[in-house]
Nucleic acid binder design. Structure first.
Ligand SMILES: [Zn+2]
Length: 309
DNA sequence: CGCTTTTGACCTGCGC
DNA sequence: GCGCAGGTCAAAAGCG
């Protein structure tokens, strides 16, 4: 992890320019010694080189600033990730397996991040029986990117759901929708869908329990976003797909952690997005390539100099 | 007609 | 015990 802090990326670009100057001066002096008559032409050549060097210095300075900015961002992201990593193990104490403090537990997801959508239960809680009450211990949280223009709370996950309630909660102006599996009471699975307070285009879906039947449409795995669709579609045609981050819940967070969970999930999402956008950004990659090539060039110059000596 | 959604009322747990 | 907030119920309405 700490290799991110390695400042070796901040190449000493000034040294590159200085070595140019030194080398040029040496050349000029040699030229004076060997051919005094060509002094004027050499002087012109030197001016040209100096101009180029100045340009390079400016460019190098820009690059240095860019690299510094990237480095600072990297440090900040690393710090966030470290904090998230530290939170996760602490959340696995799992006092929630005891039957107290019901409501608090229900909304609270532990910080562990899972990639798969299914079975987002905590490994430490898997031995608990799945009676209807204890089914609540099997809670997973999924963040789904939804169409910003679509304000319905419909999430595509392949199962059929029956909406049985909607509430406006205190900490979020967006209403929370309550769904039961259409196979209820055979299948006691429930889900809650609410827009994120941080980003209203993100739906926070909390699943409670596991389906005790096959997926009717067979596509409960990650699916691609399919855009707008009628909210009245009784077959749960999707507006959003749970393809981003899943937080398994084994509950038991300190109070007021719902927003933290949400923020943590979003942070991870942002980290992934920033990483991918950085690697796709041609200016970033070219700047990085330039910096690396400069570094290599500096190395070669040093080698040459040491050979000359 | 059967199923789903809507929505106000009701229930329940928690904090004070 | 009371008030608040989240969760659930169930009657009414909508839809195919
Ligand atoms: Zn089900």
């Amino acid at each position: 992890m700490d290799n991110f802090a390695d400042t070796s990326l901040t190449i000493d670009l000034n040294r590159v320019a200085t070595s140019y100057v030194n080398e040029e001066r040496t050349k000029t002096e040699l030229a004076k010694e060997y051919d005094g008559q060509s002094r004027i032409s050499m002087q012109n050549e030197q001016d040209i080189f100096i101009n180029e060097l100045n340009k390079m210095r400016v460019e190098n300075k820009k690059l240095t600033e860019m690299l510094l900015a990237v480095y600072e961002n990297c440090i900040a992201l690393r710090r966030d990730m470290t904090e998230m990593m530290q939170k996760c193990p602490q959340d696995h104490h799992h006092e929630h397996c005891s039957p107290s403090s019901k409501r608090k537990r229900d909304d609270e997801a532990c910080g562990c991040t899972l990639i798969n959508i299914e079975n987002a239960e905590c490994a430490n809680c898997q031995n608990s029986p799945t009676t209807p009450k204890e089914m609540k211990s099997n809670i997973s949280k999924v963040y789904c990117k939804a169409d910003p223009s679509d304000m319905s709370l419909v999430v595509k996950d392949g199962y059929q759901w029956r909406k049985y309630g909607q509430k406006v909660t205190r900490d979020n102006p967006s209403p929370r929708a309550y769904y039961k599996c259409s196979f209820a009471p055979i299948c006691p699975v429930k889900k809650k869908v609410q827009r994120s307070t941080v980003d209203k285009t993100i739906l926070v879906v909390t699943y409670e329990g596991q389906h005790e039947h096959n997926n009717p449409s067979g596509d409960n795995k990650v699916t691609t976003y399919q855009g707008h669709q009628s909210p009245m579609n009784s077959k749960e045609t999707p507006n959003a797909s749970p393809n981003i981050i899943n937080q398994s819940n084994n509950k038991q967070r300190q109070q007021g952690s719902v927003e933290e969970d949400e923020a943590t999930g979003l942070q991870k999402l942002l980290v992934a997005q920033m990483a991918s956008s950085l690697t796709r950004n041609p200016s970033f990659t070219s700047a990085l390539a330039t910096a690396i090539s400069e570094k290599i060039f500096t190395h070669e110059l040093e080698d040459e100099r040491s050979c000359e000596i």
